[in-house]
Write a protein that binds this DNA or RNA. Structure first.
Lengths: 194, 194
DNA sequence: TTATAAAGCAAACAGTCGTTTGTTTTTATT
DNA sequence: AATAAAAACAAACGACTGTTTGCTTTATAA
């Protein structure tokens, strides 16, 4: 098969482009961030970005993919160390929130930029999101709950609250992402297993 | 005091402008909606909008204010008919979600458009949001809860999940906004009062 | 050292953006 | 019917948008 005959340069600036794009997309949103903004942030001319990405939308998709990859990786790593179903869900919630509020830009782009903001790439973005949601669905399915409990609502309640936290969270030493996630889980857990 | 000497016309198109602006802002977001989009939606020339609003940002603020007014009004009406603290919170949650998912555009703009998207008007938008949040804080404060319960987390958990529902909710006959809100409250309530 | 591909520059393209200005039409009041 | 204000038109402004093109620099592999 045809593949590039030479390896990319060692001073590859593609990671830097992705970093700044992620930062700007999460700060200002997709539509309000121009290719010139991104180019200026990496000290490059606007046209040069098109050597790396065919279109602005493709740049977003790349950031989005990296964001989903980062969160998924972190959550997988966290739940692997637990066996008790409630402990696993708590570990996942903590990892999810830490990925969002501490890891920073990439993960938050996934939460902030809506598929409908990028019509031509919407399908790809939705697919990426869904693959992640399935992970939490499994964790909730494994919980020992009374039969009348609505597991879907439980998942939506928890994940919605976690994702929404980006809007009110302020980094303030106390009230860490970990503490917030645990507090949420405590409120949900006590009700179900007593 | 100086006020206009003549009443506005009876065929006033200002409400129509607000309606279409709300619809577009909620569909595409603030940055991706142009004044020309709005003008076309009300069958007007772009420049004519500036008779009613000095700037695009002022148009957003007007939509935002109406959105907050609508939600606040609906929630106030709902809790006035209840006396039990948990019933009052449930009524508020139902009203909040119905305002978001049924009333439609105005309320959703408040949830979707972030103050940071509109730097010059951010302060005004934040103020409007906070005035509403205080309402829920009061309702949660009135709940009869064990002393160790974190009331702030409870409020953030509930309100976050409600607001996030815009991202996954599909109008499907079943699973009404009312049913969703009740389901959420059931999950929270059982834990705290048993 | 030389060829070759990767990466970036320089400059422009056509289109869109929010907004302004001067003028005209339409309506309510007298 | 006359007048004055409300509302919209018509046309353009400069700035900014995503993107393309042809050319040059730079690092790597032979």
């Amino acid at each position: 098969m045809s593949q590039s005959l030479r390896a990319p340069r060692s001073d590859n600036r593609l990671p830097q482009i992705l970093d700044e794009a992620a930062r700007l997309f999460r700060e200002k949103g997709y539509a309000a961030t121009s290719m010139r903004d991104i180019a200026a942030a990496v000290d490059m001319l606007p046209g040069s970005l098109y050597y790396h990405f065919a279109a602005k939308e493709d740049l977003l998709v790349a950031v989005y993919e990296e964001g989903v990859r980062l969160i998924t990786e972190k959550v997988h790593g966290a739940i692997a160390r637990q066996t008790d179903p409630w402990q696993r869900l708590e570990a996942a919630a903590v990892a999810h929130l830490e990925a969002l509020l501490k890891t920073g830009d990439y993960a938050l782009v996934v939460i902030r930029v809506l598929p409908q903001d990028v019509p031509r790439a919407a399908a790809r973005l939705v697919k990426l999101r869904d693959s992640y949601d399935a992970l939490f669905a499994e964790l909730v399915a494994a919980l020992p709950l009374p039969p009348e409990t609505d597991r879907q609502s439980l998942r939506l309640l928890l994940l919605g609250a976690l994702n929404w936290s980006q809007h009110w969270y302020r980094d303030s030493g106390r009230n860490t992402p970990r503490a917030i996630a645990r507090s949420f889980l405590r409120l949900l857990r006590e009700a179900q297993q007593s």
